[in-house]
Computed example of a mutant assay.
Amino acid sequence: MTAPDLAPPRTVGGVVAVWVVAALAAVAVGVLAPVEDRALWMPIALGACVVVAFVVQLAVGRSRGFIQRVAASALGALLVMGLIGVGFALSALIAA
């Protein structure tokens, strides 16, 4: 028999951790990939972030709100990577 959670653990940290991973991945793609290949590598990095989101939320071990947490992680990663990608695209236009 299991006891109910009296004070459930905070799950915001897992969502924010995926956003940080997305920011690091976007910066790594922007710095390491050639300008013409950045559009190819960004979706690959986003796919890796979605996998990281599933792993992080499964590691939390709570089933309540799982879909919402994974969705928030993936959507936030998409927005973070999109903003950083726009920054790199503008810098490529200015440098050209």
Rank of each mutant, 00 (worst) to 15 (best):
V55I: 08
V56T: 00
A92E: 08
Q68V: 13
G13P: 00
R64A: 08
P9W: 09
R38D: 01
V52P: 11
F88Y: 08
S73M: 11
A59N: 06
A23S: 06
A3Y: 13
A71E: 05
E36Y: 15
I94C: 09
A59K: 06
V12D: 14
I94V: 15
V12S: 12
Q68A: 15
M42Y: 02
V18H: 03
L90H: 02
A17P: 05
L83R: 00
M81T: 05
V56L: 04
V51K: 14
V35Q: 11
V18C: 10
A71W: 03
L46A: 15
T2K: 08
L32H: 15
A74D: 06
A33F: 07
I67C: 07
I67Y: 14
I94R: 14
L78Y: 14
M1R: 03
V60Q: 12
L79K: 00
L79C: 07
L32E: 14
A59S: 01
F88A: 09
A96L: 00
G13I: 05
I84H: 03
V35A: 15
S73Y: 13
M81F: 04
A59G: 08
A53C: 08
V20P: 02
A96T: 04
V51W: 09
L32Y: 14
A22Y: 10
I94N: 14
A25C: 02
P43N: 04
V12M: 01
M1K: 06
I84F: 00
V56K: 03
A3V: 13
A23I: 03
P43R: 06
L83F: 13
Q57I: 07
A39V: 01
V55R: 07
Q68M: 06
V35H: 09
